[in-house]
């Protein structure tokens, strides 16, 4: 039988702010640039994960969003690690790091390609980073669309959930290019599972295009 899918939690990083569910959790003011903001947020969240400093901006941004979402939702307490899927979309894939890497090979007099930069020229490394952090081993995919596309997110996540291959899915949008960034991750769960645990049901919304768009277009501005 088809189970109803719910958006149980979401976390957004945009405009020097982190918003978790309905509340603005962190406002980081007087930050001169994006890199400074990411660092300030990492410290504010009191994370202790030295690998963070090796990540590119795309991975750092998605990582910080997922950290907050995973912590707030306690998703790891309710599902086995191979039952949790991750599907992330963006517009520019890894172009931010691609451009940085190209600079290391462009000029033959200063030719210095580095494996530690090259590895981040794949956008799905972000998904790998989140999986490594929490030993999440379920289905994963990195997909690209021009803009935040609620219908595409819904189609992909719902068909994966309906197939029964995952019981919960971390999904959404993590876009980074230069100083422009926005990140919005959702946790999607089967309604029947959610009602078995006490999980602030007042926050839950049905997993629909409208609800995805409402969160993306109205919160955190």
């Amino acid at each position: 039988m088809k189970d109803n899918l719910l958006l149980t939690h979401w976390c957004m990083i945009r405009n020097n702010q982190l918003v978790i569910d309905n509340k603005i959790d962190v406002v980081t003011e007087n930050i001169s640039n994006f890199a400074g903001f990411l660092k300030a947020l990492y410290k504010k969240e009191q994370l202790s994960y030295p690998k963070f400093y090796k990540m590119d901006s795309l991975s750092k941004t998605g990582f910080l969003t997922s950290e907050k979402l995973i912590k707030e939702s306690n998703v790891l307490d309710h599902y086995r690690k191979e039952e949790i899927g991750i599907i992330i979309f963006n517009s520019s894939a890894s172009l931010d790091t691609d451009t940085a890497y190209q600079k290391t090979i462009q000029d033959k007099s200063s030719y210095f390609p580095s494996p530690s930069v090259f590895v981040y020229t794949l956008p799905n490394i972000l998904v790998g980073e989140i999986c490594i952090r929490h030993k999440i081993k379920g289905e994963n995919a990195f997909l690209v669309s021009e803009k935040f596309d609620a219908e595409m997110i819904l189609d992909n996540v719902a068909s994966l959930m309906e197939s029964g291959r995952v019981q919960a899915c971390l999904c959404g949008w993590v876009e980074v290019l230069g100083e422009k960034y926005e990140s919005l991750l959702f946790l999607v769960e089967n309604a029947s599972q959610v009602f078995e645990k006490d999980n602030k049901p007042s926050l839950h919304k049905t997993f629909t295009i409208n609800n995805l768009n409402n969160i993306y277009y109205t919160k955190g501005d």
Binding site: V119, E129, C131, I136, K137, E139
Partner: peptide, 11 residues
């Protein structure tokens, strides 16, 4: 079909 992640190392 199915996919999975090692959750071990990025490269």
């Amino acid at each position: 079909s199915a996919s999975s992640n090692d959750a071990n190392h990025i490269s």
